[in-house]
Amino acid sequence: METKPLNIFYEEPDPDRWVPFDRYPRRAIRRLIRGKQRPGGVAMVAINLMEGLKRLGIPYRFNDYGYIKKHPEEIACIIGKPHILFEKKWLNPIIFGAGIYSHPIECPDLFGRYPNVRYVLVPGEWMRKMFEPYYQQKVLAWPAGIDTELWKPSSGEKRTDFLIYDKTHGRHNTAILEPTLALLRKNNLSFTIIRYGGYTQQQLLQGLNNCKAVIFMSESETQGLGYQQILATNTPILAWDRAGYWLDPYYYPHKVKFAPVSSVPYWDERCGVKFTSAADIEEKLGIFLGSLSNFKPRDYILENLTLERCARKYLDIYNTVAAELK
C-alpha cells in the first residue's frame, strides 16, 4: 500500500528584535560572520527522523505550510519548536513533539487550547512520567534515531584508556568530576576530556577512535543523543547516573520537583556500567574494567535506536492517529 507523504514541520525561533522583519538581515549577517550554523540537538531530532524515513522509502514534505493549509484533513507532524504550534493557526490534526517545552506547566491546558493535538511526544520515559499527570495517556515517549553508518567502530589502535565526556558545566566539579579524575590518576589510567558544547562532530569521532572506553558525565538527559552516538561506535560507557531530582534551575525547586531522572535513559547491560556518586565510582570502575571486553553497546543501538527503527516507531504513531481519525 502506498504511503502518503508525512507533513513534517521544524523551525528554530527567530523573532524580530528591534524593528519588523529585521530577523532576515540579522540571519544573513550571522551566516556571513559565523558560517553555516551547526544543528543543535533538537534540530537533529527532525533531521534524523527525515533521514530514517528516507531510508525506509517513506515520502515526506518539510515545512510546506502552503500544502498543509490547503489540506486541513491531513496530519501535521510538528517536531518542534513549540512556537510553530502557538503562533500559527492549525486546522489539522497534530502530532506535537518531541522538540517541545521542558515541562507541561508551560502549557497545562494544551488539549483545551489546541484540541486538534492528538498526541504529545517527548524524548524518553522519565520525561513521559513527568508529563503524564498533566497529559495522561496523550503523552508518549519517542526517541530520535542514531546514524549508525556515521557512528561506527574504528579499526585503529586505541592508546587512551578513557575519553571523559563532560556535560556537568562545572556545577558538579567538586562532587564528581574531580574525584573521578583523581581515581583515574591513582590507577595510572590515561584520559582526555571533551566538553559538551565545545567540540565538533569530527573531534568526538577522533576522540572515540583513540579511546578504549568513555566516562559519561551529565546531570540528566531527556534522550541523550551524544552518549548514544558513542555507544553506536561500540565504545562502552561508565556512566554517572545520579538519579534524584530534575535540577533545571528555571524550574527547580520553586516550580517543579520531579524525580527520578536519568543520565542514560536508553540503556541495558550491554552498554556498560552505571555509578551514582563519588562513593561508588571506585567499585564500579573495577567492575567496568573487569568486563570491558564483554560489552556490546553497538548491538543495543542496532536493536533499538537506528534511524530506521525510530522512524518506523514514529510512523506507527502516525498510523495510530490516522486510524483514530477514520
Rank of each mutant, 00 (worst) to 15 (best):
T3M: 13
N7C: 08
I8G: 09
F9Q: 00
E11N: 07
V19H: 12
R23Q: 14
I29F: 15
R30G: 11
G35T: 09
K36P: 07
P39C: 07
G41Q: 09
G41A: 08
A43Q: 15
A43D: 12
V45E: 08
A46T: 07
A46G: 13
N48G: 04
E51S: 12
G52E: 01
R55H: 07
G57V: 08
P59H: 06
F62W: 03
D64I: 07
G66R: 11
K69P: 09
E73M: 07
G80Y: 13
K89P: 01
I94C: 08
F96S: 08
L110C: 06
F111I: 05
F111W: 07
V122T: 05
V122S: 08
V122N: 13
P123N: 12
W126F: 02
M130F: 01
E132V: 00
W142S: 06
P143I: 01
A144H: 10
G145Q: 07
I146H: 02
D147A: 10
T160G: 03
Y165S: 15
D166F: 07
T168A: 03
G170S: 02
H172E: 12
H172D: 14
A175R: 15
P179H: 08
R185G: 04
N187R: 14
N187I: 05
F191P: 01
R195I: 00
Q202G: 12
L204R: 11
C211P: 10
A213M: 08
F216T: 00
E219Q: 11
S220T: 10
E221R: 05
E221K: 09
T222K: 08
G224W: 02
G224K: 06
Q228R: 12
Q228L: 15
Q229Y: 11
I230M: 08
L231G: 12
A232E: 09
T235C: 09
P236Y: 09
P236S: 01
I237M: 05
L238G: 09
G244V: 04
G244S: 09
Y251S: 00
K257D: 11
K257G: 00
F258H: 13
S262G: 02
E269S: 15
E269H: 11
E269F: 01
G272E: 11
G272M: 07
T276P: 03
S277D: 04
A278W: 00
E282V: 03
L289K: 12
L292Y: 08
N294H: 13
K296H: 13
R298P: 01
R298S: 10
D299T: 14
Y300I: 05
N304G: 04
L307T: 11
E308H: 08
C310T: 11
Y314R: 03
L315P: 05
A322Q: 15
K326H: 15
K326L: 13
